[in-house]
Amino acid sequence: MEKLTRGETERLQSILGELRDHEATVEVLRRQISLLASSISELSMTVEAIKTIKGLKPGTEIMVPLGSDSFVTAKLALTEKVITGLGAEVAAQRSATDAIVVLQDRRAELEQALSRTREELGKLSERIETLRPEAEQLLEKVKREQP
């Protein structure tokens, strides 16, 4: 019958602690990735919408969403100006061209953040994959130890 040495017990506790921490971080990173991806997709759609509006003539009929798949017909008053949020509950009117540049910059920043987060997740997953076999080996020894 095998028994864990004191060193092995300490190592097992340390690995299990580390794995628990890493798994919690992985969960947070996955949520961040999902949020970043959805923000990037929303920014892309907004940029496309502004580009389309910019190409329309004032007075063009459009459908404005009211939610729950319901719309109201409206006519575009301005096609060259849009209002975009600056953060902190403040918004400003800008030219459609400026708004596109600002939104594309924001999208580029988020894409960089997404890439960094994915890289971090990759490193953490590798670390988990390295630790897991050692933990499993020690846990197997503990199981064998039990009568």
Partner: peptide
């Protein structure tokens, strides 16, 4: 800070709004 910076970059007379 970002909103303040963006406000500073706006053209003179650009309409601004508060949610």
């Amino acid at each position: 800070e970002r909103a303040l910076e963006e406000l500073g970059k706006l053209q003179e007379g650009a309409p601004v709004y508060k949610s």
